[in-house]
Each structure stands twice: as structure tokens, then as C-alpha cells.
Amino acid sequence: MSAPEQDHDALIQQLTGDLAPVKRLAPPFWRALIWIAVIAAIAFVAAMATDRHAIAHRLMAEPDMWLAVVGSTLTAMLAAYAAFQLCLPDRSSYWALLPLPPALLWIAASGAGCLRVLRIAGTRPPTAGDERDCLIIIIALSIPLSLLLLVMLRKGHTLLPGLTTLTAGLAAAAASATLLMFFHPFDATASDLIAHGVAVVTVVTCVRYFGGRILPPKNNSARA
């Protein structure tokens, strides 16, 4: 037996000695569904606490309003699903592209709202203070949502931590933007869109760079 083969044999013996039964990870679809269910529960509570008729009127007044909400909701769902796929070691990096189409819809509809000349009845443009509040709400909501997502992703073993945390950040930011709809009685404006954009980019960047500390290390150390 050559020296490398002896090394491999020694490692195999060590790993075999460390072997303990493991619980198989649930499929990504079901794990993503749990996270989405948590968001849905928060949305339900928020809907109970706000004026649902006013929200429905605001969303249905112009197509860009409801298209932006559909875009952010689908982005959150598909980004979460992509993150659960990417946290498995054998999945393709192309999963990271899954949330891009709804994200484009979200950005396009939000941008179209800013170009609209007619104001929606019963709404007003947000003030600088309102925009600051939007930014704070998106970031504040994203913290628990992204932490929950990262803790759930931690159970996997990703070999693509950058893409996994990137999609996780996008999911949390998009979900927060969707939940913001319940506390956002304003018409679309360019400055409001910029505030939302800054908040989303901040969340995605923070989760991308700090989320790796919560995920299991990519480089190996034997664990039972």
C-alpha cells in the first residue's frame, strides 16, 4: 500500500470510528415552505391590524402597484427556494438565477410607478421622514427573517456560501418589502423607490458578507 493510500485508509478508519446516525435533511421545497409560512403568518397578523380596504384600493388603482407586490412576493418565495437548493453541496449554481425574473418585474413595476403622472386617490407622496421610516422598517424586518433563514440553511452543507447567502439576503429583503405594503399608504415616487432600493441593497450586502459566519464552514474539520 502506497503512502497516500495509507493516509486515505487512516482517514477512512477515523471517519468510520466517528460515524453517528444522522437525520436526513427534508427536501428544499418543504423547508422553503416553512419559511414562507412564517412570512405568511406575519402578513396575516399585519393584515388584521391594518385597513385592508384601503390597501386593496391602493393596490388595484394602478397595475404597477399590484405588479410590484406580486414581483416582491415571488422574488421572496423563489429566492428562499433557491437558497435551500444552494445549501445542498451538489446543486447547480444556476439556482441563483431563479429569483431574477420576478426581481426584474418588481424593479420594473416600481420604476413604472415613479413615471406615472396621475396620483392614486387617497394617497400622498411620502415625505423624507416617511422614506427614512420605510428604510428602517425594511432593514428591521429583514434582520429576524434573514436570521431565521440562515439558521435553517445552516442545517445544509453548502459549497457555494456566497451564492447561498446572496439569495438568502434577497429573499429576506423582498419579504420585508412585501410586508412593508401593510404600513405604506403612499403613492410611488422616485425618492421612495431609492429609499427602498438602498434598504434592499443594504440587507442583501449584509447577509451576503455576514451570513457566512452562521453557515457551517466550507473548509473541512471532521465532525461526528
Binding site: L15, D18, V22, R24, P27, K155, H157, P216, N220, A222
Partner: peptide
């Protein structure tokens, strides 16, 4: 052989992620 050692360790740490239907 360095890759072999690294993959054996990864396989050990990620064994719970393997889905037997694949």
C-alpha cells in the same frame, strides 16, 4: 490525493444532505 482527503471529509460532514432518491 489532497483532493481525495478533502472530499472524504466533506462527504462525512455533508452525509445528511444526501437524498437516496438521487
Amino acid at each position: 490525493d489532497d483532493v481525495v482527503q478533502d472530499v472524504l471529509l466533506t462527504l462525512h460532514n455533508a452525509r445528511h444532505t444526501y437524498d437516496p432518491s438521487r
